[in-house]
Design a protein around this nucleic acid. Structure first.
Length: 789
DNA sequence: GCGACAACTCTACCA
DNA sequence: ACTGGTAGAGTTGTCGCG
């Protein structure tokens, strides 16, 4: 019989030669099903240094290799666009595959081994062009499910599955969860501290909160959570920070307590897998924090901030602070509060999931990577995997990842801005400049013509400045891929035009076009990334060079039309707005440069400092846009940002700097009078590496060290610190946020080094200096000194 | 030994 | 753990002074 299913997850049972691919999905009737496919074996491709037939004989004559191989045959393939005959070796199961992948590169007759780093389940999806989060069809017969496997129906594949183009996403069961841990000091430790509460919310809106016993025994909680997961049987489990925080904790905790955490569809706990994510067999584990990383607008990635940004409604608080959990747990009233917060968190996680999951499914489908991996995979690996799949369709083998030397190259062009205030400025953008250049000049690793090589018949494109050459024909890999992506995005957006945003299909399409855009925009960066399989720095270098040429040409055209140039960065130009010249400018650029340029925004008024990449402007619709300045940054305290924002607003809307000066003075007075919260003076900075690797004693590093002394760990997190009164270097006075009380705050530091500089950044344009901002404000007494005398 | 200044480290932004 | 270009704060090193 034919079974049609939406693929949720794929796993691999490496049972020797009887290895089995397991496809977990939802069928058309909405049943949760499992399809078993036996007899698929992972393969390797050998590029021999001898004749293929000779290579084949050599392999077969080696008993160890012969034993591991189930099939050896010559296959016509391409590598970097070059046709070649490879020797395909199918392994007898996973172990044999690993043996071959290890032994073959050492053979003298082997030049290169490819696909040795692609796991069996990946190869399966790849070779069949079957994609997760999409519909597929397979000829299969119903069988009894394997032991311990919980599904509504199980099938044995009798053919191989094939993708079916259907867009709809079936109705899935989603379960959001959020735990709260006990902790006395610092971070909770799973070997010591119990899980105090764990809340869940499902797609139907049913909520539950489990708690540890009176004495703090959380065995029952873990057991109850497992039972709930089994009973509800979700397809998707969502959490916030679950990959880096909750799963490691829950798994360790359960192990320590001897409780079996039965979260997956085989009754087992989650296990760590690719890209550091946790795999829950048969379900998709989606950590929304992974997706929040792709929202640069949200600086501090708390659940509350992300939910607010996405327009998800919730009530505060959503956090139980590390030390607070203990305190709350001790009283009946506190315990209720703790449970409420925990539940609110789970509800908010569900709310956020409602916004993000569509995108996650579509990204997974586009890239062909299971949805639980795609979130955790960095951009480079997403592109990598997308390209591997595209390559396969074109008969191309996936090159190996090879260690590459560092080779810096010149990037985009940034103009010196005309400092000051300008009225009526139009910003023009080249649409998708880098991808378009890659298509236009056929820039790709496989079209690159190394220096000294003879030029082909069809001719070459020569990159300006850098001189790299690329064959005009045939179309290169990147060109094919990018054309496909850009065409797809256009089609999707075309289809959306006939739909209302409220329609489910609109949401699916919108999510899809967004994921297409993400990949399209990442290909240039990928091409110059040393970890890329299709790495070729000359490609990236040529793209950037052509980009500089393109924008220079556009600027020259603007000059000819007597348009005033205010600023420009990489693919955008800021020009004095002259409505009657816009059409001519656009047309002339398109004619001479061959790329499309479009007006992106018109500013009524815009201000630039001397600095590049920093400006603020008032748009025609009345919105104020702030770019690059402190307001846009996450590493300045709120106080400085608020003041700067207000200064910008006054200057742009009212055009009155003296009013802004007055505002700042008043603000400082209030501030000195103690009118602020700790949040206003906290500076957040990321710990980007293990603490011992730091070469300097920076404030945020020292604050992090103080936290670590209390059991806080993990880099990659943001540390909030406050500068407190006292003497010595700044780093000696940087105290972790939450360990500080407002009376400790070194107000002078914040005035001198945060608020005034941020305000002055704007007001210096009007020749306003520090003294004018501080005039009439007496310097506060040096308390530190007074104490000693 | 001191202070001015340059060099370096670090982070986060723009495109 | 996609690229280069850029600003800015803060720490550390260096150099000339006398």
């Amino acid at each position: 019989m034919k079974v049609k299913f939406w693929l949720l997850d794929v796993s691999h049972e490496p049972a020797g030669e009887a290895s089995e691919i397991r496809l977990w999905g939802v069928d058309e009737e909405g049943r949760r099903i499992l399809i078993l496919d036996r007899g698929f074996n992972p393969s390797l491709y050998i590029i021999p240094s001898v004749d293929v037939e000779e290579a084949r004989r050599r392999l077969i004559s080696n008993p160890k290799l012969k034993k591991a191989a189930s099939l050896v045959e010559a296959e016509e393939r391409k590598l970097f666009g070059k046709s070649l005959t490879a020797l395909k070796v199918e392994a007898k199961g996973q172990e044999a595959f690993e043996t071959l992948a290890k032994a073959l590169p050492k053979e003298g007759w082997v030049k290169e081994v490819l696909h040795g780093d692609l796991r069996a389940s990946s190869q399966y999806l790849l070779s069949l062009d079957v994609k997760p989060c999409g519909w597929n069809q397979v000829e299969a017969r119903e069988v009894k499910p394997p032991r311990n496997v919980k599904v509504e129906a199980c099938f044995m594949a009798e053919g191989r599955p094939k993708a079916v183009e259907v867009l709809e996403v079936p109705s899935l069961r989603v379960l959001a969860f959020s735990p709260v841990y006990y902790s006395e000091i610092g971070s909770p430790n799973p070997l010591r501290d119990p899980v105090l509460a764990l809340a869940t919310v499902n797609s139907e809106g049913e909520a539950k909160v489990f708690t540890a016993s009176e004495s703090g025994d959380d065995r029952g909680l873990l057991e109850a959570f497992s039972s709930l997961v089994e009973a509800y049987d979700p397809d998707v489990i969502v959490g916030y920070g679950s990959n880096r925080e909750d799963y490691p904790y829950l798994v360790q905790r359960a192990e320590k307590l001897g409780v079996r955490l039965r979260l997956d569809r085989t009754g087992h706990p989650p296990h760590q897998s690719l890209y550091g994510h946790f795999s829950v067999v048969g379900r998709a584990n989606v950590d929304l924090l992974d997706f929040a990383e792709g929202m640069p607008e949200v600086k501090l990635k708390t659940l509350a901030n992300v939910a607010s940004f996405l327009g998800v409604k919730f009530e505060e608080p959503l956090e139980v602070g590390a030390g607070e959990a203990k305190r709350l747990w001790e009283t009946g009233e506190g315990r209720e509060k703790l449970k409420e917060t925990c539940l609110r968190r789970a509800e908010t996680v569900m709310g956020v999931a409602g916004v993000i999951l569509d995108f996650a499914y579509q990204l997974s489908h586009l890239i062909g990577m299971p949805v639980d991996q795609v979130g955790a995979a960095a951009v480079g690996f997403r592109v990598d995997w997308y390209l591997i799949r595209e390559a396969w369709r074109l008969g191309e083998l996936a090159p190996k990842r090879v260690e590459q030397p560092y080779y810096p190259y010149k990037g985009g062009m940034v103009l010196e801005p005309e400092a000051g205030i300008h009225e009526k400025v139009a910003v023009f953008d080249f649409s998708a400049m880098y991808p378009s250049l890659m298509v236009k000049y056929n820039l790709s690793p496989d079209t690159y013509l190394p220096e000294g090589e003879r030029e082909p018949e069809g001719g070459v494109y020569v990159a300006p400045e850098v001189g790299h050459k690329f064959r005009k024909k045939p179309p290169g890999f990147y060109k094919l891929v990018l054309e496909e992506l850009m065409k797809a995005r256009k089609q999707i957006r075309q289809r959306m035009k006939g739909l209302k945003p409220s329609q489910p299909l609109y949401r699916v399409l919108d999510a899809r076009q967004k994921s297409v855009k993400v990949i399209t925009n990442a290909v240039y960066g990928y091409s110059g990334w040393r970890g890329a399989r299709w790495f070729r720095v000359e490609v990236a270098e040529a793209v950037a060079a052509w980009g500089r040429k393109t924008i220079s040409d556009a600027l020259a055209i603007a000059g000819k039309l007597n348009l005033k140039v205010i600023y420009g960065d990489t693919d955008s130009v800021f020009l004095g707005y002259e409505p009657d010249k816009v059409a001519r400018f656009e047309a002339e650029v398109e004619r001479q440069v061959g790329l499309e340029i479009k007006p992106d925004a018109i500013y009524e008024r815009i201000l630039f400092t001397e600095a590049k990449k920093r400006y603020a402007g008032l748009l025609q619709d009345g919105r104020v846009e702030i770019v690059g300045l402190e307001v846009a940054r996450g590493d300045w305290c709120e106080a400085a940002k608020k003041v700067q924002e207000k200064v910008i607003e006054i200057v742009l809307r009212e055009g009155d700097p003296s009013k802004a000066v007055e505002y700042v003075r008043q603000w400082i007075k209030d501030f000195k009078a103690g009118n602020f919260t700790l949040e206003d003076v906290t500076v957040w900075k990321t710990i980007t590496k293990p603490i011992e690797e730091y070469e300097v004693r920076a404030p945020h590093v020292e604050a992090a060290k103080r936290l670590m002394a209390k059991g806080w760990k993990r880099y990659g997190d943001k540390v909030g610190y406050v500068i407190v009164k006292g003497s010595g270097k700044l780093y000696q006075r940087a105290e972790p946020y939450l360990t500080v009380s407002p009376s400790d705050v070194d107000i002078d530091y914040y005035v001198e080094n945060q608020v005034v500089p941020a305000a002055l950044r704007i007001l210096q344009i009007f020749k306003i200096n520090k003294n004018q901002l501080l005039a009439g404000i007496p310097p506060s007494k040096k308390e530190g000194l007074l104490k000693y005398f």
